[in-house]
Amino acid sequence: MKSGGHMAAALSRPGIVMRSAIGLLLLCVSASGAGAAEMPPGASSCTGCHAASPTVDTPAPRLVGLSAASIEDAMSAWRSGSRPATVMDRIAKGFSDAEIKAIAAWYEAQGAK
């Protein structure tokens, strides 16, 4: 069950997930710098399940490295119930469009650093 099911499929973008481990490590370091202070509400809870490190063994996909559009699309679909989920449907319903947009933009920016 390393596929991560529909969640990984929905969120993964080829190419992005292929970055080297060293590159990702550097991203994590920069993500934890001064820019982290502007983390939008809710975003800091995500890393409880979505690992910052690419070496953690988990079916939940990493968020750093995903595009804002892919995160927004997935969250909207889970919120409306149009995409099946295990847990994310229940969590997505707690966030407004604006909140989701801000969180998605923040994770995209971490990947761009």
């Binding site: 069950m1 099911g5 890393t47 409880g48 399940c49 979505h50 690992a51 910052a52 490190s53 953690v56 063994d57 988990t58 079916p59 939940a60 295990t86 847990v87």
Partner: peptide, 23 residues
């Protein structure tokens, strides 16, 4: 399959949070 997925997500959560907190 859903119960199995949640068991896998549970262990994935443990691996993730312990790495963030203690790794």
């Amino acid at each position: 399959s859903t119960r199995k997925m949640e068991a896998d997500l549970a262990l994935g959560w443990y691996n993730t949070i312990t790495r963030e907190v203690f790794g």
